[in-house]
Design a protein around this nucleic acid. Structure first.
Lengths: 259, 259
DNA sequence: CGGGAAGTTGAAGAGCGTCAAAAGTAGTGG
DNA sequence: CCACTACTTTTGACGCTCTTCAACTTCCCG
């Protein structure tokens, strides 16, 4: 699998799209707008906190913006910060020695980034599209987690959810065919969008075919061929701008559940 | 993939090995021996608890024994209990509609079983060999978790660890070759045994080739052929009773990391 | 011993990967 | 405005790894 490792370090064309955001990739802002008004607070770990607890969180948070294709941190790097995604989409991935990559998840607004005990990040993270995050210094956030049971409880819930999602993905990676993998991804992303009150049909897939392949354990070519096949069978149809119409939810469901 | 679903409901020959334990598969005991003396307490979620907290735990715990091949609970069943493994080994797995199975983990002494928010188990659990567990009624344990921050913290740690392990397994399932998969499993099981103070070489693999296949996303035959190949290359050699000597740790490490 | 399941091995085939090239898309610069 | 560039996506041809199907061997426990 002769993948070029450098391929993953930056995504030139997509990075280019986001020059408006800043040539450095990241841009921090003074945390002007308070957490009270945060549109994703209720589905993030920040929900359920008391007023004064939320104020303490605000003291240590920094908002930042990352352009499409920009890395947020690398696997193995010292874990200095934890994050909350507030807009856009983030991919997290692990690499093998020869450059093979497995994307272990796509994060969306409200998702927490940086769940881990270890001192080093166990995976890399990179923005799929222009995204915004809340950044917390790790030490200070961990202090708050220890002091606020509500926060620790939210974190446990979030981690348990992630674990259940990861276990589903293990079934997909280990036991599903290419067609079933793609169908499952389409349905799951549609449902996740619906849960967040976003359009679920057509479903929005902002990532590249290569990203989808690395997420599903397939090659770009197989992903492309599978989409073509699903289109030919009128199970899906192409929308505009990375959007895909789910034309036959029943067949997609059958493919996902493996009958 | 024409796997017979019934195949997974019981494992006749192994179940036979454990007739001494009881024909019902399960046997409960009065919780005579207290948690203080528990040999796996320090590596379980019960570590770090105050004396009175541990006493409250003891009030709701029941010890039970399961024979090899016996189910503990099924996927989709109402989650009435949570467990702590104290001896033996438990496999947890998910099924697809046509019977394809993915084993999402093997649990060993000290591991917690039943991490989940949902009212139903997200996976099935079955004993690989004769095993012992501590069983907690779900409601009552969850009450204690809410009351004892230490317990919740331990649970968060355990869940985070499980998540990190699951993410490693996603790389294995999505991106590694059969040889790399088997090498990775051998090394990881050896390391896990070492962490628990058990023999790490030869490494003990009590599960069947079919179980290993369903864990690695391979067929029984491919697992068998891969072991033969590794043996022929003197990277491993056969021990007795499901034990395997790791003859070349360096090559195994290289295979695991994918160079 | 003897029966049944687990494990091994072989041959053939399918699905997905690899390599290669063409077509589509978006940003760049004259 | 359009050609140029760089990348992504699609499609085709071919090959290889792993699966499938089948037979045989080994192991375990009665």
């Amino acid at each position: 699998m002769g993948l070029d490792r450098a391929m993953y370090s930056a995504d030139k064309s997509r990075a280019r799209q986001s020059e408006a955001i800043g040539r450095l990739g990241h841009r921090d802002e003074a945390s002007g707008s308070p957490c009270q008004a945060c549109p994703v607070r209720l589905r993030s770990i920040c929900s359920g906190l008391e007023f004064d607890e939320l104020e303490e969180l605000e003291k240590i948070v920094a908002r930042m913006t990352v352009g499409a294709g920009s890395p947020i941190f690398d696997e193995g790097e010292t874990a200095r910060c934890r994050y909350n995604v507030t807009s856009g989409s983030i991919k997290i991935y692990k690499l093998l020695g020869d450059g093979r990559r497995q994307i272990i998840g796509f994060l969306f607004p409200g998702d927490f980034l940086g769940l881990a005990l270890a001192d080093e990040y166990a995976y890399g993270a990179e923005a799929v599209v222009d995204s915004e995050l809340c950044r917390f210094p790790r030490r200070e956030l961990d202090d708050l987690i220890n002091r606020f049971p509500t926060l620790e409880n939210r974190l446990l819930n979030a981690t348990s959810n992630e674990l259940a999602v990861a276990q589903e993905q293990m079934v997909l990676l280990g036991r599903k065919t290419a067609k079933e993998k793609v169908a499952t991804m389409l349905l799951l992303f549609s449902r996740r969008a619906a849960e967040r009150g976003m359009a679920d049909n057509p479903v929005y897939l902002p990532m590249t075919r290569t990203d989808i392949g690395d997420y599903l354990g397939l090659t770009t070519e197989t992903v492309s061929r599978t989409f073509t096949q699903l289109r030919a069978q009128r199970i899906i149809s192409a929308g505009s701008g990375g959007r895909i119409w789910l034309e036959d939810l029943e067949i997609l469901g059958t493919l996902m559940e493996g009958f």
